[in-house]
């Protein structure tokens, strides 16, 4: 068994352990879980970096040429974005709700991923690697902002309805959840901007059938504008709290539609095969 196969098997287990540790810390206040969950996550992220680097080196292309390669990249960017937000905000209680997503992505990826040595030359480009990684980091941040938005709405309704259950007792404050969601939106805005910039520079050279009317490009621009408008509105008006969280969740739903339905139902140069 080579290193890539070994890490491919190891990673879903690593994410499962991280989810278990964050879950034990959240629901049962288990001391070992509280003290070690962050280190476990950091180890998994480190292992994932080694795995992605090993794949890129071994197959001479960025790991973004198939749906299953994209899923492992998404698992990595989601957990890394979560780690950044956890470090910036100092809040470590929401990991269980977030890390289930990379665990699921990595599990599916590990089960079905294939080692492709022969890929179109265009997919070996570094521009392509940057474009896809930035786009996926943006979508991961969108996912995080939606999860935080969803947790915000759960807590908002518990407090409004005076139901004081586990969500009330364990989750961070409403303001804290909103801050984390907005931070994720900023990350999404930044990464999507980078992905679009790289795309506009590189795609016309790489694809002869490139079109600015590409559905995925339009969808991404729409999401980017939506988030940009929401962030601007938040700064200048009373777009705070519940309204902002609804924007976060709406952006996620539109992104999912753009990534899946548009990719599967509409034709164009801009799709994974």
């Amino acid at each position: 068994m080579n290193i890539i196969s070994f890490l491919n098997i190891l990673l879903p287990f690593g994410y499962a352990v991280a989810v278990y540790a964050y879950g034990k810390a959240f629901f049962a206040d288990t001391p070992w879980a509280k003290s070690s969950k962050r280190w476990i996550l950091l180890s998994v992220i480190g292992t994932h970096i080694v795995y992605l680097a090993a794949r890129t080196t071994a197959f001479s292309h960025p790991p973004a040429t198939t749906v299953y390669e994209v899923l492992t990249l998404l698992a990595f960017t989601t957990s890394a974005a979560y780690y950044v937000i956890e470090s910036r905000t100092g809040n470590r209680e929401t990991g269980y709700f977030i890390l289930n997503i990379p665990f699921f992505f990595q599990l599916v990826s590990s089960l079905f991923i294939k080692d492709l040595l022969e890929v179109p030359e265009i997919l070996r480009s570094n521009y392509f690697g940057f474009h896809v990684t930035a786009a996926l980091a943006g979508y991961s941040a969108i996912t995080l902002s939606a999860v935080y938005g969803f947790l915000y709405l759960m807590l908002y309704h518990e407090i409004k309805q005076t139901r004081f259950g586990a969500v009330y007792r364990k989750l961070p404050s409403l303001e804290n959840l909103e801050r984390m969601s907005v931070m994720a939106i900023w990350l999404a805005f930044f990464f999507l901007a980078a992905a679009m910039l790289a795309g506009v520079v590189w795609l016309p050279q790489a694809f002869s059938d490139f079109s600015y009317a590409d559905p995925k490009l339009i969808g991404t621009v729409f999401i980017w504008l939506l988030y940009g408008a929401a962030l601007a509105a938040r700064r200048s008006t009373r777009w705070k709290g519940r309204k902002m969280m609804i924007v976060a969740i709406s952006g996620f739903v539109i992104s999912i539609f753009s990534l899946t339905a548009v990719n599967m139902l509409l034709s164009g140069f801009h799709r994974f095969n």
Partner: peptide
């Protein structure tokens, strides 16, 4: 305590 569940600081 309720205020602390709404506000961060």
């Amino acid at each position: 305590e309720l205020a602390e569940r709404i506000f961060e600081n």
